[in-house]
Design a protein around this nucleic acid. Structure first.
Lengths: 230, 230
DNA sequence: GAATTGACTCGTACAATGTACGATTGGATG
DNA sequence: CATCCAATCGTACATTGTACGAGTCAATTC
């Protein structure tokens, strides 16, 4: 209960990305902007991982002082929120939803997952209350597809959450179990351990199988089977 | 690349929880132990949230110096890992797997989720490579139930991952969208926003519905429908 | 009994972090 | 010219994880 509740400062550019008025143009100093900050944050996260993002390092990359960031951004948390949503970018391809609904869903969710896996740090950011515009756009889309497919009104929300849960879970899991860069030795040792305590698990080689993409697709198919309107 | 790669220290008690030899018994100083550390960490996380856990505060609660913790625990990350697995405690009720397999799965996954929601911080710890004994026990159990139910060998791992994904995703989501303690005003404003940009979403009231338990159960049923052996 | 060992504890110190605060800048507007 | 204000940034501070090494006892060895 100590260092909280500061907020309510005073001025901030908030939302209105109208005319940045091109301050500081004499030489060619690039000047900060929310877009540049977020883009650079993503770069830095890609390069250094989630602990590599500090306000000072981010400012360095931007050629500015650390405190300058705070004009554009409330705090570090906000940078994370924005970076996450930025990675989930979604432009509707918009064939309205006529074709096969399963294909559309699969495509959108695979794209969702692929986007996140391209930036593995994004998975560790999921556990935060971030409903950026891109996530919302994807939910909106899901809604349209499913209701267009004839899913009962009463089941609609449940169906959407189920798909959401599945994608989130699969991505979080996958991003953390990427063994290939892990010591193979550790995996082997773990398996030996498993043999004693968890025989079925060891036999199934669940933890060594690495066709994540295939598994994602197959599992999604199972879920869609269950979701399909009767 | 500055403060890393220290490790390889020297001695640590590692695993052997054999005889603590009752050091420091003259007065009645309780002395540290891994169990006490983890239990207290969970208490502290429950009380103060994920940012409330610092090595110093944890040590305070234990009545010890901060650095004493490092004899029992490699670093703070390890404390998180242990706290997470501790929350997922799983004792097999062990009716071997004769009854209806769906009921068994539903019960186990609802228990899994309930345990985590009782300690909301645990959701934000999921994105880490933590396969503690309790998680493994649950996976082992899932394997047994599903293969006992007649799920094809080739589908087994996919089925397990699907269920895993679903639980993880649902828990992460739920732990972060608990609006009731959130400003209701913000939710309303958000909904108004949605009306313009995301009409279907706004109409569905997806984000205001709060029967999370029911939705979890229904979605799980859908998934199990899809998973059921043909 | 004295000396040694080794399991465990902890005080001090340091580098790194997020960010509060206030000063500064320079273009736009009067 | 003076005024203003969006934007930048240096300094400072409290807080963090943890390296390092010194301290403390019980058990063990002489």
């Amino acid at each position: 209960m100590a260092g909280k509740r500061s907020g309510a400062q005073s001025r901030r550019p908030r939302g209105k990305a109208a005319s940045p008025r091109s301050v500081r143009e004499p030489g060619n100093e690039p000047a900060l902007s929310l877009e540049r900050i977020v883009a650079t944050a993503v770069e830095l996260l890609d390069a250094e991982g989630i602990d590599g993002l500090t306000m000072r390092r981010l400012a360095d990359r931007l050629g500015s002082g650390a405190m300058s960031l705070y004009w554009h951004v409330e705090n570090k948390e906000k940078v994370f929120d924005l970076a996450l949503d930025s990675v989930l970018e979604y432009r509707v391809s918009e064939p309205a939803g006529s074709r096969d609904w399963r294909g559309e869903i699969v495509q959108m969710l695979e794209d969702w997952r692929a986007n996140m896996l391209r930036h593995p740090w994004s998975a560790s950011l999921l556990p935060r209350r971030a409903l950026g515009p891109n996530i919302l756009a994807r939910l909106e889309r899901l809604n349209k597809i499913l209701s267009g497919a004839g899913v009962a009104e009463a089941d609609l929300n449940v169906a959407i959450w189920s798909l959401w849960n599945y994608v989130i879970g699969a991505t979080v899991t996958r991003a953390n179990f990427d063994l290939s860069q892990e010591d193979r030795a550790a995996a082997q040792e773990r398996l030996a351990d498993l043999g004693e305590r968890y025989p079925a698990l060891a036999r199934s080689r669940l933890l060594l199988d690495d066709d994540w993409d295939g598994a994602f697709r197959k599992g999604l198919d199972f879920l869609l089977d269950g979701l399909a309107p009767r």
